[in-house]
């Protein structure tokens, strides 16, 4: 465990927990894409298939449980909670899961470390995580004005991506045989998807104005 990895995990954890806590407190999920949240729940469910078979560390197991629990709780709130679901922008959040899930599944069947159910699901979860933010970014573009909640959420997710890349560079130089092409390439693609958002986020922060995305 290095400092970049820990910082990455913590910002990732904060992004999910901040979102869950705010939805729970203000009973609103306006601006949040249910499609993206469902894709993340699927990402965690397919990646952590090893949770009961391979023990890595107490930290690892607890974090996996928190990510699974919080991502499914968010989906539950947005679909089932009678106040929260009323604030959901259903008409604007039209991205189809299918268009992301199917290509990722096909890619995972072809590109994986080993052709076993667990390894294919692991590769699938990495490919899907890389593109799962797309429905959220489309929703941001459509609704234009972004409240603090959504801005902070995407900012924390972007910080998590950046820290993980530093973590991979660090591990590559400090650990023998640390090579994970699938993780790195999908992680890089995911980070690039945030670059555009970050450009506008920092500009609005620098100029101290409310964040607006161009059409």
């Amino acid at each position: 465990m290095n400092i970049f990895r820990l910082a990455g995990d913590m910002t990732h954890l904060m992004s999910v927990l901040v979102l869950l806590l705010k939805i729970h407190t203000i009973k609103s999920c306006a601006g949040i894409s249910l499609k993206t949240q469902e894709l993340y729940a699927l990402v965690f469910a397919t990646r952590y298939l090893d949770i009961f078979t391979d023990f890595i560390s107490v930290y690892n197991t607890i974090m996996k449980l928190i990510f699974l629990g919080s991502s499914f709780s968010i989906v539950w709130y947005m679909r089932r909670h009678k106040l929260v679901r009323r604030s959901y922008d259903k008409e604007q959040d039209t991205f189809r899961h299918f268009f992301l899930v199917l290509p990722c599944l096909l890619l995972a069947l072809v590109m994986n470390e080993k052709f076993t159910f667990k390894e294919v699901m692991w590769a699938f979860s990495l490919y899907l995580e890389a593109v799962a933010i797309l429905p959220q970014l489309v929703l941001l573009q459509r609704t234009k004005n972004i409240d603090n909640l959504t801005g902070q959420y995407v900012f924390l997710l972007g910080a998590y991506r950046a820290f993980y890349i530093f973590n991979w560079i660090y591990r590559y130089f400090t650990e023998p045989h640390y090579v994970h092409w699938i993780t790195w390439i999908s992680g890089l693609v995911q980070t690039l998807l945030y670059a555009d958002f970050f450009y506008y986020y920092f500009n609005s922060w620098k100029n101290n104005v409310k964040l607006h995305l161009p059409a």
Partner: peptide
């Protein structure tokens, strides 16, 4: 040189 132990990231 990849084994399951290397999949220690989240």
């Amino acid at each position: 040189p990849q084994n399951n132990h290397e999949k220690d990231e989240l």
